[in-house]
Design a binder for these strands. Structure first.
Lengths: 347, 347
DNA sequence: TTGAAAGCGCTACCAG
DNA sequence: CTGGTAGCGCTTTCAA
């Protein structure tokens, strides 16, 4: 149709291609390509002419076409699930920012409730993403398997799989749990209840294990443990259930801040208890809301930036073919003391 | 190197291509393509053979290659900025889900602080996304201009540009503001202060305008208005500033829930005032935290799902080349009455 | 330093 | 219903 008029300053309505630019600048298409891929050996004169023509036509290289031949999309797949929680939302946002910093775009894939983890990964793989980051996901094993088959690097963020050959980056939940226990114990708390998220997650298990071992080291046993999920509602329910049994711990350790918020609200507004005067509450993650005056929650801070930066760096190194054995990168948490834990010491 | 062995059950380490499958199934490459693009006219026999071969090789069509020829990536660019706020995080998550429902993947692009809005859009355009959704962005005009030039559909979500020829989907902020005023007035409040987010945003302006016009209709003037941004900290600061001036309104209307949280916390924990007994607070958006017992915030609910669904539908229709003039889709908000507004009526 | 030509993996057209 | 063939817009040899 309108295709015959090829002498063109204008390219009709379709985006200009390198050939269009070449024609206008009176050079070969290869030369145009070279200008935009910085394969430096070009005369200034030619480069200038090309750049001018490109500008005139509003030319920008088509990354899809580039990807096809270079076998690199410069896209990182970010696979998420429970993104409603502030913790994961933050992690995802930071991850997108970090990817950008390393020159990558982010394809965010949410694993839908009914969906297998492997299907979410496959959707990313279909676009030939250069690498994949997984935060929460069900069935990470098969996900990692399919990535290996496609030889696409995968890193687990805030998760790990024992024994599996997958790179992972998390905080040292074991140590953090232990630190939390130590803090609570030092403050004189002896009966400590635990409100835990998803029992299947490595993070949940490690936090409890760390807490427990430190407590036992000090001859305190952790007898009251509830499991639920990382959500406000679950925090409420677990708290209700705990207290309904007539248990009255000195302190409640929650494996996530959002659980702590739910618990605190039940304690204060359903049971009429004061926090921390009547009962202490401790969280985990240090999401933005912890600092809000209504909660003012003492918590273990995850080193967000560090985690994300490391994960991204690791992934990029893999993408560039560097890197050797399986990496399991562990990062220290830090106690952030606010006002939700009472000191029971006579001092 | 290893390229000569083309008889292959295995394709080395690279992903299998349609040609690999064709060879194994003893059909032409075109036939393989047909099987996977559902151009139905194929004998069951052939289809079965192809599918089997594909399975054996772990073949999946390369969407990048498909995109190059079909001129459709099936990717939607989602451009966000202030994604720290729960409201935008929710919107983004829902948008990703909606895109998926319509068969699209999401490339999430965060406009970095120093970056021009147009650059963020350009990054998406470089990947030839089929359409773009913009929530927060600076300088939407030039963004919309470049989309028009590339003839890539754009829809503004929770924003609009007066006069510009851009599709937009938002809630009816004017009406919502008016509804909020009506509610506050009906409850007997006469001196109403406003803590507003970003003064430049159409949403902010409309909410205030709606509130103001309804108030004036009832002979109440709105004299105390602070501007800031949609953040907890800003909420705190505005509230401090408001009350430090010795002003003591009956009620404070906040143009976003997160502002209200900051305000409530200052009222309660810095000024020792009770909400709602001493002063009433009303929010806007209905983010998840509003229902938390600590806040229990009365607010105007944005119809999230409806907004997102509409935006996605609109975008998809544009992508498919349907649709006519500029659409400005407006959606009603609904008052959600919780416990942060006191009735001043003698009743 | 530049140009010509091949080809990335796919769709789509045209024959048969 | 199936195969051959021509590109999509780009990078990358290989020559000149």
């Amino acid at each position: 149709m309108a295709g015959s008029k090829k002498s063109a300053e204008s390219t009709g309505n379709r985006p200009a291609t390198s050939s269009d630019v070449a024609r206008l600048a009176n050079v070969s298409q290869s030369t145009v390509s070279r200008v935009f891929s910085d394969t430096c050996k070009l005369s200034d004169e030619t480069r200038k002419r090309v750049l001018e023509a490109a500008k005139q036509l509003g030319y920008r290289p088509n990354k899809i076409a580039r990807s096809l031949v270079s076998n690199r999309t410069n896209i990182i797949g970010i696979i998420v699930m429970n993104n409603e929680s502030p913790f994961y939302a933050t992690l995802t946002n930071l991850m997108i920012t970090a990817c950008r910093k390393f020159g990558f775009c982010s394809m965010v894939i949410r694993q839908t409730p009914g969906e297998q983890g492997i299907d979410a990964v496959t959707r990313a793989l279909d676009y030939r993403v250069d690498g994949i980051v997984v935060t929460a996901i069900e069935d990470s094993e098969s996900a990692s398997e399919i990535c290996r088959q496609s030889s696409v690097p995968l890193v687990l963020l805030n998760r790990y799989i024992a024994g599996a050959g997958v790179d992972s980056v998390c905080c040292d939940n074991l140590e953090a749990g232990s630190l939390a226990a130590q803090y609570l114990l030092d403050k004189g708390h002896r009966s400590i209840a635990c409100l835990m998220g998803d029992a299947a997650a490595s993070t949940t298990r490690d936090r409890l294990a760390g807490l427990r071992s430190k407590a036992e080291e000090r001859n305190v046993s952790i007898d009251w443990v509830e499991y639920g999920s990382y959500s406000y509602e679950s925090g409420r329910e677990m708290c209700r259930k705990l207290l309904a049994d007539g248990k009255r711990p000195d302190a409640i350790f929650c494996s996530g801040d959002i659980i702590a918020f739910g618990a605190m609200d039940v304690l204060r507004y359903e049971l009429g208890l004061r926090v921390p005067e009547d009962i202490s509450v401790m969280g985990f993650d240090d999401t933005a809301e912890t600092a809000w005056a209504s909660y003012n929650l003492t918590t273990m801070r995850q080193p967000y930036e560090e985690l994300v930066e490391t994960a991204c760096q690791l992934l990029v190194r893999r993408i560039e073919g560097k890197g050797s054995g399986v990496v399991r990168s562990l990062h220290a948490c830090r106690l952030v003391e606010r006002g939700s834990v009472q000191s029971l010491q006579p001092e």
